[in-house]
Design a protein around this nucleic acid. Sequence first.
DNA 1: CGAACCTTTGATCATACTCAAATGCTGTGG
DNA 2: CCACAGCATTTGAGTATGATCAAAGGTTCG
Lengths: 241, 241
Amino acid sequence: MATEKNSPSLSCKDCPFGNVSFYAPTWTSSPDAIQSLRSRVTTYKARQAIIYEGEESNLFGTLRQGWAYRYKNIGNGRRQILGFILPGDAMTLEMLTFGNLPLPFGVSALSPATICWFPLEEMTELLRRKGPQDEHSRQMVHGYFNWLIRRNSAMGHTSAASSLAELLLQLMVRLKRCGMVSGNEYDFAPTQADLADSLGLTTIHVNRLLGGMKRQGILQIEGKKMQVFDKVQLRRIVTQG
Amino acid sequence: MATEKNSPSLSCKDCPFGNVSFYAPTWTSSPDAIQSLRSRVTTYKARQAIIYEGEESNLFGTLRQGWAYRYKNIGNGRRQILGFILPGDAMTLEMLTFGNLPLPFGVSALSPATICWFPLEEMTELLRRKGPQDEHSRQMVHGYFNWLIRRNSAMGHTSAASSLAELLLQLMVRLKRCGMVSGNEYDFAPTQADLADSLGLTTIHVNRLLGGMKRQGILQIEGKKMQVFDKVQLRRIVTQG
DNA sequence: CGAACCTTTGATCATACTCAAATGCTGTGG
DNA sequence: CCACAGCATTTGAGTATGATCAAAGGTTCG
């Protein structure tokens, strides 16, 4: 884990993800306000822990490069991945609502990752500043909450294939928003085990499902490159339940 | 649906659930502050809609009598019950965080129910008042959020029997807090279909599970009365996954 | 070059769903 | 107050989805 006080190579003004971030309205009007708040930039190796479950912290982190994920350990060495974090995303947006109460989940890097850390109190104050920024923050937290509710509602009602397809599509949409999709191809960091842990399935079953999709010509995964050929078919799998 | 401007028979000072409510600290120190804020008291018949999905409202409701539930409609006439509401509980505690943004779920009465309605803005202001009340509100919302995360984490990892047992135990704890359990017996409003919709199972499967528990002498359901004889065994079923 | 990890395949099994139908309970209107 | 309609519960038989167990190739990284 390397930390630099202020990385000149990663200025906020040039950040490609400022406009998808939590502080987008402020970033747009005055990127320097963000930069001057930043207390440090830290890099993590793939699979390295970033935040531990139950931790309290006075820092608010935003992912600048790479992939990360939130997870919760559940009995006998298993874990549930609660969601993937992409560039521009906050590590812990609930901190905005709850302050530094102990987190019910941990965060780890999925690929080599870089995170910009800000002092929690000042960042919270900035994000709650009346006007477009305040409005935007509320929308983001509200969206996250609705997503949680939706996920909860899908419990017994969706097949494994459907939820896998939905996850892949959602990731693609989010990656596109980050400008990380070129054509139908993009870097895909999660292993099949990660996908399984995210969906509450076994690795083996995810493998068979992906195998089926490959055979149907819907997608291709080679190395860490994903290609989606048939989004329509993928959406059909989602809606078939 | 009957509404009275101010029901003398249901004064806030004598409310048996003031101390389990969202506004408990304020209620303890000055019940009159609550009473004077209350804009109306409404009764609902069993199964009657209280709040519609997507609705925006300027009212904050607290359940005074009976049972209710939050639910979300999912395709083909099915619904997911997101949680049961007991006396003292808020209908929509997320309103405290998000104001009157459209709700991602509806609320209905499960049994005949009475609800105390308060103006949202004033109630929000009261609940955020610095000191014990502010602290208490944050704890409640935080607890709810953690519960959501936990539920999300349990996705593929728990058997139907385990999640049913957990639900029954949780309800019992909450009912006890409301003083609604005498000995091991209490009124139980949900049907087996309600339990199924809450857990993402089929009614038939819930029936078989309950049947098994009855045969093992763990519990008894007759009419709308539930008796739990063997809490230890029930807890064992939960932890067995 | 070897160890660790990731992907793939096969065979078998169990949990919970579907379909079908009978019985019991509750409340409502004649 | 009884008859009936509409729910709610219970039981049986068969099925399917996804898990488990076992093991063999591929990659990647140190």
